[in-house]
């Protein structure tokens, strides 16, 4: 179980995604240089590192501010069925034909980290948990938004059921498409944060994250992991696929 969260495991999982990742990082670094240079002509190349550092320090500051702004009782607006966006956009760091195919019978949700009962969960067991629905707005970091209907089990109740240490700082996710991300515990316990198994009253289709997607209407879309394989609770900052490349970690709405 522990293997899930090791760096080696992460690296071995997909060479192509790691390569993309490194390219992005390099690109980000270069772009920040160019930005700084175009603004302050005559600026030294070595100052690029300082600019980079300041921007990331500001992003860390914004994480803290958003943590303070986050009201655990404030609910995201819910909408009528008539407001649902058709078709709901597919969005990932790969094309739609690369969506992972997951075998329902073999699937087990793995639990790791600061959780007492780490017994893996089969899909029928998860489907048997209490289910609720929500129609909320998904806001993408790119700027677009879309309204959809998701159904599943309240994530906070699930965490308590498996004996997760809810005083820990982070909940991390590892996904079958090599995606990974993490959220703060306060958001994980928010009443509208759902571990969802259905979209528009149908079993979650592959393109929307079969077999499950964490729906977090108080955060941007990329903080809503799909195809979740493992969930872990930790006090060590787990980062994320996009977060490690420069997207703001908290990214609250």
């Amino acid at each position: 179980m522990k293997k899930i969260i090791t760096v080696q495991n992460l690296l071995s999982k997909g060479e192509s995604s790691t390569l993309k990742h490194l390219q992005r990082r390099l690109f980000l670094r270069q772009s920040l240089t160019l930005g700084a240079l175009s603004l302050l002509s005559g600026c030294q190349i070595t100052e690029q590192k300082d600019v980079d550092q300041i921007l990331h320090a500001m992003s860390a500051w914004n994480d803290r501010v958003q943590g303070w702004l986050f009201d655990p009782r404030k609910l995201a607006p819910e909408y009528p069925e008539s407001a649902i966006t058709h078709p709901f956009p597919f969005n990932a760091f790969y094309d739609e034909d690369e969506v992972p195919v997951i075998d329902e019978a073999d699937y087990r949700l793995e639990l790791a980290g600061l959780i007492q009962d780490k017994k893996p969960w089969a899909l029928p067991e998860l489907y048997a948990l209490p289910q609720v629905s929500q129609i909320t707005r998904h806001v993408c970091v790119e700027g677009w938004s879309a309204i959809g209907k998701w159904s599943g089990t309240p994530f906070g109740a699930f965490l308590k059921r498996v004996g997760a240490d809810t005083s820990a700082k982070f909940v991390g996710f590892k996904c079958d498409d090599d995606y990974y991300t993490s959220i703060d515990m306060a958001t994980a316990l928010h009443p509208q944060t759902l571990l969802t198994f259905r979209y528009a009253d149908q079993i979650l289709p592959a393109k929307y994250g079969f077999p499950m997607k964490l729906r977090v209407p108080t955060k941007l879309g990329f903080k809503n992991p799909k195809h979740i394989r493992a969930i872990f609770v930790t006090n060590e900052y787990p980062g994320g696929y996009w977060e490690d490349q420069g997207y703001n970690w908290f990214s609250g709405s």
């Binding site: 992005r24 980000l28 772009s31 920040l32 930005g35 500001m58 790119e142 420069g246």
Partner: peptide, 18 residues
């Protein structure tokens, strides 16, 4: 434009807003 890509631009935007 500034930032090189969306992530870079967002870092600038949310730093300069303060």
């Amino acid at each position: 434009t500034l930032g090189g890509w969306l992530g870079g631009a967002l870092l600038w935007h949310f730093a300069a807003m303060w």
